[in-house]
């Protein structure tokens, strides 16, 4: 067995397989299917300072090899997480990461301050890339100046490693990555969903209540690989890669492009045990290729 351990900004992960926010609930929903403690970590549902009801139904459109969602960050808020969810999660033997989103800079800052006090949360993922909220969300992640502002302000109140989640819906994701690196981010995760749309031709209406939504699933992997590769060549901080990872081969492709860890998202809907198969598959791959450690394949793409 190869050494699967990986390290993101000082946080050690027993393997590089995490789960993506919004696709894994609070982890417990998958406890019947897998041993959560085998995961490198899991990232809980996108959380905002105040509770949000999310967008109206319908929120889902299936597409060839993918899906578009328009959930809109439905969640019960940071305080609810601290009071009701955190106590159930803190004893897991894996890294539990909170995905924090906001509609204004102050909300991000206050939320980060509150989460900073949770001993068993080793780092947070700052979501500046949700395409499904009217105010804020992706707005912070599409302009370098705004990304820099929110990251530096959160940086000043949050003492632990800060992963910043980026949107692919920009002209140059490398520019955004450089801006958040300069503002003090310890790591970037990418990609969030791809802005997309589905139409019902018979009804002559959009499928989603919000007209546009965020696309995920196998179909977005080539975009994610391109983004990870571009960012890997632009910044020094470690990258967490995600977007369309359905199996171990997809995960390895992402790591070859420069991701030091990966997140599995939509694939959890189709196979709730897929994360375990990916961990085993990475191990098999490393053995076949004579690698002693998973770190040997990070950015090892031969050009």
């Amino acid at each position: 067995m190869a050494d699967l351990k990986t390290n993101i900004a000082g946080v050690e992960f027993k393997n590089p397989v995490l789960t993506a926010s919004g696709t894994f609930g609070y982890g417990v929903e998958f406890a019947d299917f897998i041993d959560l403690n085998r995961l490198g970590g899991f990232i809980v549902k996108g959380t905002t300072l105040h509770a949000r009801e999310g967008n109206a139904y319908p929120r889902l459109a299936e597409t060839p090899s993918g899906m578009i969602n328009a959930v809109g960050l439905q969640n019960k808020g940071v305080q609810y997480f601290i009071d009701h969810i955190y106590p159930k999660l803190k004893d897991y033997d894996t890294n539990v990461i909170v995905n924090l989103s906001g509609s204004c800079v102050d909300d991000y800052v206050t939320g980060a301050e509150m989460l900073n006090q949770l001993d068993k949360i080793p780092c947070i993922e700052l979501n500046i890339s949700c395409p499904n909220v009217k105010a804020g969300g992706m707005g912070f992640g599409t302009q370098p100046k705004m990304a820099e502002e929110v990251v530096s302000k959160v940086r000043s109140v949050y003492n632990k490693p800060l992963i910043v989640k980026l949107t692919p819906n920009v002209t140059s994701i490398a520019e955004i990555a450089k801006a958040v690196e300069a503002a003090g981010a310890d790591s970037v995760s990418l990609i969030n969903t791809v802005l997309a749309m589905a139409v019902d031709a018979e009804k002559q209406r959009p499928v989603l209540s919000t007209v546009t939504g965020g696309m995920s699933g196998a179909a977005v992997k080539p975009i994610a690989l391109r983004c990870v590769w571009q960012v890997y060549n632009a910044v020094q901080i470690p990258i967490v890669g995600l977007g369309g990872i359905m199996n171990a081969t997809d995960a390895i492709e992402m790591m070859l492009c420069g991701a030091r860890a990966i997140e599995v998202g939509t694939a959890n809907f189709i196979d709730p045990t897929v994360t375990m198969k990916i961990i085993d598959g990475i191990d098999d791959y490393l053995e076949r290729h004579g690698c002693k450690s998973v770190s040997e394949i990070v950015g090892a793409l031969k050009i």
């Binding site: 919004g22 696709t23 894994f24 609930g25 929903e29 998958f30 549902k45 999310g54 139904y57 319908p58 929120r59 889902l60 899906m67 969602n69 959930v71 439905q74 939509t266 959890n268 809907f269 709730p272």
Partner: peptide
């Protein structure tokens, strides 16, 4: 619905 497990919040 997508996940069937209460995690994607699409079927509300």
């Amino acid at each position: 619905m997508a996940c069937g497990l209460g995690v994607c919040l699409c079927c509300v």
